[in-house]
Design a protein around this nucleic acid. Structure first.
Length: 418
RNA sequence: GGAGGGUUCGCCUAGUGGCCGAUGGCGGCGGUCUUGAAAACCGCUGAGGCGCGAGAGCGUCUCCGUGGGUUCGAAUCCCACACCCUCCGCCA
């Protein structure tokens, strides 16, 4: 949710942000109107309520006719107060609905336009020259690392087993992410993968993403699509000490329905219903958010570099940001079999948008509570196995293990199994 | 699945219809004293909305797990629900 004070004082900025996203500012007008309507309702209620309280206090000390008259008057007021209170409730519900419909203010500098208007900030590393590259499905099979056939047999399309070196690679990669993150001051966390509706709702995943989310009907619980959900909800309703940012690295399995993506990326493990991910999450003061955002991006780049993967950094255009991000940088790793870069990390600056909804605050220099800023970014995830296998493949189908992963694999090269 | 107990402004706690405008302690902050510190003593110490004010502020309303209800008036009475804890059973 955006800051209503900003909206009232500076609606022009909010409209400009909508324009950058290529979206209509009807929702801005609706929010302004709902805000005004609520304030009016509140004032009416408060006037009546104050009178009721004042008269009510006189009842015990009054007697006889005077008392009867007082009670009669307050009785009348009582029903008016009740009606006014109901009107306030109604106005608040309307305001909330209008509020939720307005996306976050786009950060200055973000490219305008839609999905195709992203800006490539840099390309790092050189895509390897591979004659007739095998894709990760073939390599996974050769190495005994990925079993898609049995994944489908047991769980259906878009499921897989990681086996042997595949399982070790994933564990090693995620462990590397955890260890490095911890070394840089991120607090390691292993989070719940099932959350209550409030947590899912509070992080905004029941809006546009609702059909993406698995829901357990019998228990009214949700499977998380990323540990961003439990991490963001972790401090719900709290007032934090943010003299330094609170940084977490959360490891969880992630579940996504991938509804509406039928036919897209159906091969292999690029787009699957379940995967594992280490996610970085930061709570900080709003003025630190940009700096923290760049720090998350830098961490992602260090991870990709450590795994010796060629990648590029993309500045996502305003229209492709999603509801809560003010700015988003993706890293895309080179995928030889596709001859193009594919998304492997995503770092979002949600400014105060997400924390306002979750009511996560800190105290400013004057000791007053203020809304915190939140950010998130990918430290490592199952999908990375794709560029990892493909970029390091050798003509005979073996795969070179990057230096940093050798300790957990116990060898330098993965070779095809009989 | 069954049976109990609990939920009060950081923590603990008092509070069974109007002097609750929520008690007291702990913790925290400030001060006195001290070379400094501790102790002692004094003071301050929840959140949100709205209005007024240039501003430090002032006024007002809301919030005692959540949602309803009773009442002129509810932390307090009634109903429903949520969450937490303990024990029993069952299962891993």
């Amino acid at each position: 949710m955006i800051d209503l004070r900003v909206l009232r004082d500076d609606p022009v900025t909010v409209r400009a942000s909508q324009a950058a996203r290529g979206e209509s500012d009807d929702v801005v007008d609706a929010l302004l109107a709902a805000d005004a309507a609520r304030r009016q309702a509140v004032q009416r209620f408060e006037t009546l309520r104050a009178e009721q309280k004042q008269l009510s206090k006189q009842v015990p000390s009054a007697s006889g006719d005077e008392k009867a008259a007082l009670v009669a008057r307050t009785k009348e007021l009582s029903s008016q107060v009740k009606a006014a209170e109901a009107a306030v409730g109604e106005a608040e519900r309307a305001l909330r609905a209008a509020h939720l419909a307005v996306p976050n203010l786009v950060e200055e500098g973000a490219p305008h336009g839609g999905e195709e208007n992203f800006v490539v900030l840099r390309e790092v590393g050189t895509p390897p020259e591979i004659d007739k590259p095998r894709d990760h499905v073939e390599l996974g099979e050769l190495l005994g690392a990925i079993d898609l056939e049995r994944g489908a047999k047991v769980s259906g399309a878009r499921f897989y087993f990681l086996t042997g070196v595949g399982a070790l690679l994933q564990v090693g990669m995620l462990q590397l992410a955890m260890a490095r993150a911890a070394g840089q001051g991120f607090h390691p966390m292993i989070t719940p993968a099932l959350v209550k509706p409030e947590a899912m709702e509070g992080t905004g995943f029941l809006g546009a993403h609702a059909s993406e989310v698995y829901r357990l009907e019998a228990d009214d619980m949700y499977l998380v699509g990323t540990s961003e959900v439990p991490l963001a909800a972790y401090h719900t309703g709290e007032i934090l000490d943010l003299s330094t940012p609170k940084c977490y690295a959360g490891w969880s399995s992630c579940f996504r329905r991938e509804a509406g993506s039928y036919g897209q990326d159906v091969r292999g493990i690029l787009r699957v219903h379940q995967f594992d991910k280490v996610e970085m999450f930061v709570f900080c003061r709003p003025e630190q958010a940009r700096e923290q955002h760049l720090r998350l991006l830098a961490f992602e780049e260090e991870m990709l570099a450590a795994l010796e993967l060629p990648y590029r950094v993309v500045d996502i255009a305003a229209g492709d940001l999603g509801l809560s991000a003010a700015r988003k940088y993706d890293c895309e790793a080179w995928v030889p079999s596709q001859g193009r870069y594919r998304e492997v990390t995503s770092a979002s600056n949600c400014t105060t948008f997400q924390a306002r909804r979750l009511n996560v605050r800190y105290r400013d220099a004057d000791g007053r509570p203020q809304i915190a800023a939140t950010l998130n970014g990918t430290a490592a995830t199952t999908r990375w196995l794709i560029p990892l296998l493909e970029n390091h493949q050798q003509p005979d189908g073996s795969v070179r293990v990057p230096e940093v992963l050798r300790p957990c694999l116990g060898r330098d090269v993965l070779t095809p199994v009989g």
